[in-house]
Each structure stands twice: as C-alpha cells, then as structure tokens.
Design a protein around this nucleic acid. Structure first.
Lengths: 330, 330
DNA sequence: CACCCCTCAGGGAGCGCTCCCTCACCCTTC
DNA sequence: GAAGGGTGAGGGAGCGCTCCCTGAGGGGTG
C-alpha cells in the first residue's frame, strides 16, 4: 500500500538516489545502462515521484491557479463564458504538463483566501478571470510578485491581459445593420462597470455619431432576463425602432423573446444582432446574427501569455480580432 | 521577497517552532499569552505555511481532483452540465477549505496522466464526472485505494455514485404527455452507452408498454445538432406523431428548431418535453417543458459523498428525485 | 609513461514542516 | 513536606526529494 520512494527504487536498481533522480528528471549525463536499469525498477515498482517533496526543494509546483472572480449570480456565471474559458484553459495547461487549480472568488472572504493561497506559493502563476472593473483582486495579486495574466482588461494597469477589440466588434455590428437599411438602431448594454460593456457601447455610439444618428440605449447586465427586460423598455421608449444591437448573445436571446411576445417579427420588423457568437446563437428562432469573438482563442492566448510570463517574458497586452457572423435575425 | 518560515516566526515570537506549529494548527494545549505573541509575529511577518512541507509530513493535501472524463466533443462538453457541476463543486469544496484541481481527461493519454497524478498522492480524493459506461477510468481510480465518488452511475460497481431517478423522470414526462391527450409519442434518446440514456429510454418504454402503445425511437447523442437531426428522422418515420420526449433539453432545443422549420406548431401539432431543465429551457420559443433534475443538487450530493468517504464513511450510492416543470411546449 | 582534465556516479545536507518524546514545573494529595 | 501526576513547552528526527560537492576512473596529451 505504501508508495515506493526514490531510495527504494535506487536500492532495487542498485544505484544511488542521485542517479535515479537524474533519470527521472531526464538529465543527459547518465549512462544508458544506468538509465535502463532505473527505468526498469521504476516500472516494476510503479514509482511516482512525491510532488510535495519535490516542490519543497525546487520551489516549483507545475500548477497554475485559475481564479474566477465573480459574484455567484455575476457575469461569468453565464454558462458559455465560464465553461468555454475553463475548458480551454484546462486543456491548454494540461498539454504543457501543468495542473489547474480552479478557484471561484465569489465573496470578499474567498478573495482573501485566494490571496493567502497564492501568497503561500502553491502555484507558479495565476490566470485571472475577473470582469468587474472595481474588482480589487487583480491589483492585489499583481502586488505579490507572482506572474499574473488576465483573461480581459482590468482596472489594475500593471496586470498584462488579453482583450477583444470590443469597440471594433460593436462597430462591425452597427455598420452591418445600417447596410441592411436599418435607421433606428437601439442597443442593450452590458453592466457599465465592465470594460467590455463600455467599449461595446462606445463602438455603437461612434458609428451612429459618424452617420448623424441618435443612440437609443437600454441597460442590461449580460443575462437573458435583463435582455428581455431591456427590450421591453426599448419598445416602450421608441416603438419605431427597427434594429437592436445587444452587447452579448444571452441578452439578445432575451430580446428575441420579448419581441416574439410583443408580436414583432424578426428580422422583418426588428433586426437583432448579438455579440460573442455562443453556440446557442445558431439555435434561436430565428438564428442570431452575432459578432464572433472566440472566447476559446482568447482563453488560449491568455494561457500563452501566462506561460510566457512564468518563463520571464515581457508584460504586454494582447488584442484579439473579431468578425461578424450573419444569420437570420438581421 | 523570501517568505518567512516557522523558525523565523518562532524566533521573532521568542518561542519554539513546536509552539508556533501548535498555534497555527489551532491546538488547544497552548497558553493564551503564547498564542497571542505567536499570532502577532505571524501577522507582522505575513507568514503563510508552506503547503509542500506540511503535505510532505502529514500526507494530507486538502485538495480534491475533479476529473471530467469525456472526449472533447462529448456529452459533458455541453455548457450547462459542465459549468453547473464544476461551479457547484468548486463552491462546495471551497466552503470546507479544500482546493479543487480540475482535470479534463479527454484522451487515453490524458487518462493515463490522471492515473499517475492521482497515484502520486497529490489529492485526498477524486470526484469523477465520467458519463460513458465504457470509460475505464472509474475502475482504474477505484483500484488505487483513494476515495472516489462519481457524479453519476458508472460501469465500475465499486465506485459509490449519485444518480438521478432517470426512469422515473422519463415516466413523469410521458405520463404528462398522455394526460395532455397525446397519442403518438416519440422519443429522442441520448447515446446508449450512457446509463442515463438507457434508463430514460426504459422509463419512456415502460409507460407506453403499460398503456399498450408503440414506442417511436430516434437516436441522439445529447447535442443540439443530434436533436435536430433525430427530429427530422422522426417526422419522416412517423409524420403523424403528436409528441416528443427528448432525453435532454439540448436535444429538445434542436428538435424545436426542426419542427419550426418543418412548419409544425408547438405545442398545437407536436408537444415537446425535455429533460434536465437547464436555464435555456425557459428561453426557447415556445418555452420548454422539462424534467427538472437539478444538476447542482446532484453535484452537491456528490461532494458530500466524497467528503464522507474521505472521512471514512460508507460507500453507498445516493438517488436524487426529480419533478416535471410544465411550460408552453406541451 | 606520467600527469591532467573531463565525465559521470555517489554522498549527504537541507528544503519547512509535524509530531513524538522528553522534561520542567506546578498543583494536588497523603 | 514529600511524592506523584498532570499540563504544556522545547528538542529533534524525519517526511522524499534535489542539487552541490566530492572523488573515481578513463582517455588524451606532452
């Protein structure tokens, strides 16, 4: 039942602990015959190195913390973002032989725990998914010297991040609606304490401003419910609107529902465009036009950034491009 | 930059390492004044115990591996299951002070890595989310003596699990359709190498058998696409069908899409019932009737089961109840 | 042929912690 | 007042590994 140690393997192979260690760690200064006899013993005994002992002396853990900082019913709770990011990150890190320690920071208390945990040297680096601009965690983590990469832009200016071209994507959507001949284009924003939301709103506004049109804005919080609610608001405010740009797909889905209930045909009466191009976008009725942002690519880029930082790379941000996927709703 | 050790704290507090250790670990046999002076030193130095060193001697890690065993495009990939389970589990484990090491076992190679990892004693227990009956991992993990709890029933009979009353839930759905006056009730199954799928199919069949009706079955694989495809198949096979029970909501959503495209009204022409009651179910057009299974509750129950196992509890399975949520589609 | 250098295996200290054991001291009891 | 027991602090071994250092041995060179 007891797991074999280096010493046991060494004894069995008839060599020193040092040699076994060298073989295990793939050092080249080992004679082939010693290598073979050690490998043989390792196999026979089913030896697996004790990570704690190794970590104790090397100060490397081969683990990375993925911290999702968000209230329980917050933005990241939305399935697509969370699962896409977590899955992609996990896959990517496993590919390079690193462990993922997943931490949900949902309260101030758990945020403190995260800080202590990270300070405790349990991980080699931290990938942060903290969407709220006011979140104090990014700055706190950056302060403790460990490599930190953020999945998106944060208020902490010293945290390297990967971000979408949000304004550009929104502009893409609005210009598309104008091309389709739409004249009264409204928008449903995300929560405005998020960079994403502000930038998308800014992109929307910029295009309308340039073409001499009025903005029609309703506030949402990136959830389906809020999208439905905001759409009701918009219909009340401006019954003649003929297009809506929702700052994410979930809100667009909510908006579709409201439009359906209100008897407006999509896209005949009102065109709808979302943002993110989540999988569900292709399964709405009618199928949703959306700005594809590939959260998976963004997640992958963030992992690369973090790994580079751990290796001592430069701390510079990365901006991802995006494109419009036109479907039935516009 | 260097982190303080026990010895440093002890020196500062003017006591022995042993006393500091006792205070840190909350032992009661410590005089209050020693406790205070130690706490003071800990605070001043910002001391955080080194987990590796502690783990090396105690053989406890306070970490749990959450292993999601599934091909990249497999069942668990579906956002709702993955994110609900992972979030819930993570939250639950953090609440009891345990770390979550998330591992995606997507290939045979990574499955081998998981085995090595778990064998390496990095974690105190394993929570398994492996849906495919043929998956060899559950049995392999069970063999190595570490506590293992499965989120669902597996082929490995010695792995304690938490499961839904799948047959009961399916029966609920079908009986509801019969109550609504439906006569030709079809079903779209999940992949039949999954217990879930087989049990749901069995529940469907049992009710029809008891009422002297014929089964109309199409195979799906729990994805939206497969649901849409299976629905096309069903319409071709039996154009007169007036109801469909899909073995999960995603397939039900795919089926709704096909029905819409085929010009069938839901529920007027064809009633649709799903299974799982994912959040999106309330946002389809029309809103989907579904068997609520609360994956969150199931996940919580699994965590409890695992924690109990780690404490040396009995290895007995848990069965969760479920209920029908009636919406517009039936 | 002698010497030196280089290669590569072994020895052992030490990473930071826990936990067992020892021992000092005080209180109780006869 | 002496002896015994109980409480609680300190000392130190040892967890399994890495990595520096030592030293043996072989080959090349003058």
């Amino acid at each position: 039942m007891k797991r074999p140690t280096l010493a046991v393997v060494a004894a069995r192979a008839g060599v020193s602990k040092s040699s076994v260690s060298r073989v295990i760690n793939g050092e080249t200064t080992v004679a082939p015959e010693i290598r073979d006899v050690v490998m043989q013993a390792v196999r026979e005994l089913g030896y697996v190195p004790n990570a704690a002992a190794r970590n104790l002396v090397t100060r490397r853990t081969d683990a990375v913390a993925v911290v999702v900082s968000d209230p329980p019913k917050g933005v990241v709770s939305d399935d697509p973002l969370f699962s896409t990011v977590v899955r992609t990150v996990s896959r990517e890190l496993e590919a390079v032989g690193r462990r993922v320690v997943l931490i949900l920071a949902e309260s101030d208390e758990s945020r403190a725990r995260v800080e202590r945990y990270v300070a405790g040297g349990h991980v080699d680096g931290v990938m942060l998914v903290a969407l709220h601009g006011a979140d104090p965690l990014p700055a706190a983590l950056a302060r403790m010297g460990l490599p930190v990469a953020s999945f998106n832009r944060t208020a902490a200016t010293d945290v390297p991040y990967v971000a979408l071209d949000n304004a550009g994507g929104a502009a893409l959507a609005v210009r598309h609606l104008l091309d389709r001949g739409r004249r009264r284009i409204a928008t449903i924003t995300g929560p405005l304490d998020l960079y994403e939301s502000r930038e998308r709103l800014e992109g929307y506004r910029a295009v309308l401003r340039d073409t001499g049109r009025r903005s029609i804005v309703a506030l949402g919080d990136f959830t389906r419910v809020s999208g439905a609610e905001a759409m009701r608001q918009l219909l009340e405010d401006d019954p003649d609107l003929d297009a809506v740009f929702a700052a994410n797909d979930l809100m667009a889905i909510g908006a579709l529902r409201t439009l359906h209930q209100a008897g407006r045909r999509v896209p005949d009466d009102v065109a709808v465009v979302g943002f993110d191009d989540i999988e569900a976008a292709a399964y709405t009725t009618p199928a949703l036009t959306s700005v594809r942002s590939s959260m998976a690519d963004q997640a992958t880029a963030t992992v690369r950034l973090l790994l580079a930082l751990i290796e001592g790379g430069p701390r510079k941000p990365v901006i991802m491009p995006n494109e419009l996927v036109v479907r039935e709703s516009s």
